[in-house]
Amino acid sequence: MTEGEKARLIAWNNELRTVHQRLRDVRRLTRAALAAGQPAEPAQRDLLLFCHSFCVALTGHHEGEDRELFPAIAAAHPELREVLRNLRQDHSMIAHLLAGLQAAVDRTAPPDDLNRHLEGIAAIMESHFRYEERSLRTVLETLELDADPQAVLGPL
């Protein structure tokens, strides 16, 4: 294996961690917008933008994993199918929570309600990211997947 090939393989592990950090940053910005927001119209528009961006980014990340990454891992490492099933279950739960957040934003719920939605998402998201990184780190360092990282891990 050449150094270039090895760097490409290890890049999946690094890319996943980078995407997770970017999603954490978007979540943090969303929470900051909520904390700073007043009931005035401009603050509400900012919050809508942050929440929408966060929901789209996280959903795109999980859809890419489900569509591209997890099938490649399952094919190369059938022993990880239970882990992948757990991760997909988390994706479904997070999607449900994101829909609740989006509905709360759409109905201009009070900041306390929006914060509760974000807290719930943050708790599941962090647990999911840590489990995914811990469970797949070694696999991602050796995974031979010739694909566009944005298609696999989302457009971040």
Rank of each mutant, 00 (worst) to 15 (best):
E3A: 15
E3P: 14
E3D: 14
G4N: 15
E5Q: 14
E5M: 12
K6I: 14
K6A: 13
A7C: 09
A7E: 09
R8T: 07
R8Y: 03
R8F: 09
R8S: 09
R8E: 07
A11R: 10
W12Y: 06
W12S: 00
N13F: 12
N14T: 12
E15I: 11
E15R: 08
E15F: 09
R17S: 06
R17I: 04
T18G: 12
T18N: 10
V19C: 01
V19G: 00
V19A: 01
V19H: 03
V19E: 07
H20S: 00
Q21H: 10
Q21Y: 10
Q21S: 04
R22D: 11
L23D: 06
L23F: 00
R24C: 06
R24K: 05
R24S: 01
D25H: 10
D25Q: 01
D25C: 06
R27K: 07
R27L: 14
R28K: 08
R28E: 12
L29R: 11
L29M: 13
T30L: 03
A32S: 09
A32I: 11
A33G: 12
A33M: 01
L34H: 01
L34F: 06
A35Q: 13
G37Y: 05
G37A: 11
Q38K: 14
Q38F: 11
P39R: 01
P39D: 02
A40K: 12
A40Y: 11
E41A: 10
E41H: 00
E41W: 05
P42W: 03
A43G: 08
Q44L: 10
Q44N: 10
Q44D: 08
R45T: 09
R45W: 09
D46V: 15
L47W: 03
L47F: 09
L47A: 08
L48S: 15
L48Q: 15
L49Y: 14
L49G: 12
L49I: 13
L49N: 05
C51W: 03
H52C: 08
S53V: 14
F54H: 07
C55Y: 01
V56K: 14
A57K: 05
A57P: 02
A57S: 07
A57C: 10
L58F: 02
G60D: 07
G60Y: 09
H61V: 04
H61L: 00
H62L: 07
H62E: 06
E63R: 06
E63N: 03
E63G: 06
G64W: 00
E65H: 00
E65M: 01
D66T: 02
R67C: 12
E68H: 13
E68Q: 12
F70R: 04
F70V: 01
P71Y: 06
P71S: 00
A72K: 08
A72P: 02
A74Y: 00
A75M: 11
A75G: 12
A76L: 05
A76E: 05
H77W: 03
H77E: 09
E79D: 05
E79L: 11
R81L: 01
R81E: 02
R81N: 04
E82S: 07
E82N: 08
L84F: 02
L84T: 02
R85N: 01
N86T: 13
N86R: 11
L87Y: 08
L87M: 06
Q89H: 06
D90Y: 04
D90P: 01
H91D: 03
S92E: 05
M93T: 11
M93I: 15
I94H: 05
A95H: 05
A95C: 04
